[in-house]
Design a protein around this nucleic acid. Structure first.
Length: 423
RNA sequence: GGAGGAAUGGCAGAGUGGUCGAAUGCGGCGGUCUUGAAAACCGUUGAGGUGCAAGCCUCCGGGGGUUCGAAUCCCUCUUCCUCCGCCA
């Protein structure tokens, strides 16, 4: 959520930046500002009314003490009128505030000025490439055939026990999964991230804090009976640790890494492109989260980007880093790098990580602030990124490393898997 | 799940109807002293809104109520503690 002072004082800049996201409802900004003007006016008369009522109360008190109960009684009547007035003003105030809020949450975050204009993934900008393309034999198999051939992931079991999109990993497949998780966590640990194991269910406040609610309700599985939500990413519980906090600038940056299961309903998104491991309802992900200052957050973003690229290098996967165009970015992001690996048998680029700077957009909504050396308080910047999402990494590893002798495991992973080949 | 108790500023902890946004201690910040540091001493130190400012308003877990007036009384929700039950 953007702040009203920003929209007031930098409306030109806001409009310019929002245009990158193809957001042109400029009226909304003006409506918010004029509603806020009204809010101030009402706030002021409410405050004056309450101030008068407070004065009267004190008088009434001292009149009673000096035995002048008749005069006190008269003031009481006046006070009752003031209270009634304040009540009405207060109701109007609440209405306006919620009106402002409703409009404010319709405005996406302002993209960084370096974000390319555009509407579709075709307008994204490839900023880096790494790894080398494997040379596969003509009879190379896509991963959904490889997992059957080597019996390492079982979709049928999942279909029976839960439903589509909830596979079982088994044998060397399960071990590979566990190896990747440990590899990612160890790498993050070396990079200075503190590991946390978050709850997989969050409450409504947290879902609002990181912006899943109110409008992306359909993305999450909801436990209606208890009003909890299964997390779509560890970003939600981990970032919300810091909700409603004022952090000391000296303690920044906060760096957390979390492994978690992620749950996504992905309603209506099933089709040709989502076979096998390409899209699941439940998957595993290691997520990195940082809380940073406005001055350092873009530096932090680059640091996170380097970290993720390092993981892909070690996994020896061909990858590219894509700076998302305005139209392809998420609502809350100011700048996003997507990492894609090439899955050689499918001949497809698969998104395996998304690293974003949210600037103060999430921080404003969740009241996450920092206090600097001088004691002044301002909003923090929040960032997160996948490091990495497992299923597509598994898909690419399987496809790219298939040989006649089996599937070769990259060196960096071998001490974690305990085997060098899946045969 | 049952019975009791509790929730106050960064932390600890007073406060049971007005003079309380809130004692005191610790911590933080600034200063004196010191070659430097520590100790000691002095000062300062919650958040939000509004206003040029002085000031005014709101907030003592959340919500509602009683009262002229609520941190304080009542209702309710949440969380924590103790005891019992159940259980990985």
């Amino acid at each position: 959520m953007l702040t009203i002072p920003y929209l007031r004082d930098h409306s030109e800049e806001a409009i310019q930046r929002l245009a990158i996201k193809n957001f042109d409802q400029i009226d909304l900004i003006h409506e918010i500002i004029s509603l806020d003007d009204e809010r101030k006016t009402i706030q002021q008369s409410n405050d004056e009314t309450l101030a008068e009522a407070n004065r009267l109360s004190k008088q009434i008190g001292s009149l009673y003490k000096s035995g002048k109960s008749e005069e006190a009684g008269q003031l009481k009547i006046r006070n009752a009128g003031l209270k009634e007035q304040a009540k009405q003003l207060n109701e109007r105030l609440a209405e306006i505030k919620s009106l402002i809020y409703d409009k404010l949450i319709e405005i996406p975050n302002t993209p960084h000025l370096s974000v390319p204009h555009g509407h579709t993934p075709a307008d994204n900008e490839i900023v880096a490439e790494g790894g080398s393309m494997p040379q596969l034999p003509a009879n190379a198999l896509p991963h959904w055939d490889l997992i059957t051939k080597y019996d390492i992931i079982d979709f049928e079991w999942g279909n029976k026990v839960t439903g589509a999109g909830f596979p079982f990993y088994k044998g060397k497949g399960a071990r590979l999964q566990r190896a990747l998780i440990n590899f990612f966590l160890d790498q993050a640990d070396s990079a200075g991230y503190t590991e946390v194991q978050p709850p997989l269910l969050v409450n409504e406040d947290s879902a609002y804090g990181t912006g899943q609610l109110p409008d992306k309700e359909g993305q999450m599985y909801a436990i209606g009976l208890d009003n909890l939500f299964l997390i779509p990413t560890a970003e939600v519980p981990v970032t919300n640790i810091y909700r409603d906090m004022i952090l000391s600038e000296n303690d920044l940056p906060y760096k957390n890494v979390a492994y978690s299961n992620c749950f996504r309903r992905e309603a209506g998104s099933w089709g040709k492109h989502v076979r096998g491991l390409n899209r699941l309802h439940q998957f595993d992900k290691v997520e990195i989260v940082q809380i940073s200052t406005p001055e350092t957050s873009y530096q932090t973003l680059e640091e996170m980007r380097t970290h993720v690229a390092g993981l892909l290098e070690q996994l020896e996967l061909p990858y590219r880093i894509v700076k998302l165009c305005g139209g392809d970015m998420s609502f809350a992001s100011a700048l996003t790098y997507d990492f894609e690996v090439f899955s050689a048998a499918q001949k497809m680029w698969l998104e395996v990580s998304s690293v974003s700077n949210f600037e103060s957009f999430q921080a404003n909504r969740m009241k996450l602030r920092i206090r600097d050396k001088n004691g002044s308080i301002r909003l923090a910047h929040t960032l997160n990124g996948s490091a990495l999402a497992l299923p597509r990494i598994v898909a690419a590893l399987l496809e790219n490393n298939q040989t006649d002798e089996g599937i070769r495991i990259p060196k960096a992973l071998q001490s974690y898997t305990g085997y060098e080949t899946i045969k």
